[in-house]
């Protein structure tokens, strides 16, 4: 995909730009935040936005802008790492299932069923209890949930392609199953995986928020958008901005990701469809 085609899809451009903006905001927190987020000063708490604290301060006197920057990074990291787990394990599983078929397919799909059948929140609670709550725990719990999703996408895509001529040709040319999967199937289902990836990323960010909200995700002194929501929840009627800001940030990030995902699908799909029709 080249850049000119990006301009043919204004929503894709918009979604990508917004996602990128948030990602950069988060990444920037690694180098610089207006105030250190572990810096607690009770005397400065609940300040309204002004020149020194652009978004005000929270219940511990921490700068809200700094927290949102750091929280955005955590949310992205958790979501992305969970997608990486899903893609890393799910896609090979789906491909193997589709290429080998028969008992292999059966076993792979049962493993995927198993991973799916475990309610992710309960997995998260159990992991949190075992290794202590934290971002890692959220990553694992959401990642496990992502595995069957990507396995099904990869398997479905591979099955749809396997009946097509060029795969048959590759088979006739004597290529092994692994090679076909790697060279011919994977590149062609990449768009499906990328699209699913953006969806799972946005779901992961929402899931992280939910887990942190019930106290199983990110733990202080680190922060995430979900943890900020949790901290601010009981103060909603007194200091609404403390919940509205992180809530809004979550909504905007997820919308940006979804728009980008939809745009990607629109931009990438025709190619896939043409091949299907060929």
């Amino acid at each position: 995909m080249n850049w000119r085609r990006l301009l043919d899809h204004p929503s894709l451009a918009l979604g990508l730009a917004a996602t990128l903006a948030f990602a950069l905001l988060g990444l920037a927190s690694l180098i610089w935040t207006p105030y250190p987020i572990a810096d607690i000063a009770i005397s400065r708490r609940f300040l309204v936005p002004d020149a020194s604290h652009l978004l005000g301060t929270d219940h511990l006197g921490r700068d809200m802008l700094s927290l949102i920057m750091a929280g955005t990074l955590t949310s992205f990291t958790v979501g992305a790492a969970a997608v990486a787990i899903g893609v890393g394990i799910g896609v090979p599983m789906g491909l193997v299932a589709a290429m080998w078929g028969g008992p292999v397919d059966w076993v792979a799909m049962r493993i995927s069923d198993l991973a799916f059948a475990f309610p992710s929140v309960i997995i998260a609670i159990l992991i949190a209890t075992l290794i202590g709550p934290g971002a890692t725990n959220a990553i694992i719990a959401i990642g496990i949930f992502n595995i069957p999703v990507f396995a099904r996408v990869a398997r479905g895509g591979a099955l749809a392609l396997s009946s097509l001529d060029f795969i048959g040709a590759a088979r006739l040319a004597g290529l092994g199953k692994a090679a076909i999967a790697w060279r011919h199937i994977l590149p062609n289902i990449m768009s499906l995986i990328i699209v699913q990836g953006t969806i799972q990323l946005s779901l992961g960010i929402l899931a992280e928020a939910g887990l942190s909200y019930i106290g199983l995700g990110t733990q202080p002194p680190a922060t995430s958008l979900g943890l900020m929501l949790r901290d601010a929840q009981s103060l909603f009627l007194i200091h609404p901005s403390l919940s509205l800001l992180p809530g809004l940030a979550i909504v905007l990030i997820v919308v940006a990701l979804n728009i980008a995902g939809d745009g990607l699908r629109d931009a990438l799909d025709p190619r896939l469809r043409r091949q299907e029709l060929a």
């Binding site: 946005s202 939910g210 909200y213 909603f236 919940s243 809530g247 979550i250 909504v251 997820v254 919308v255």
Partner: peptide, 18 residues
């Protein structure tokens, strides 16, 4: 629909209650 997907349901629940 984009907005609907993006709103955390517990947050939405709070707003509904209010």
């Amino acid at each position: 629909a984009q907005g609907g997907v993006a709103v955390p349901n517990f947050w939405f629940g709070m707003l509904l209650t209010l």
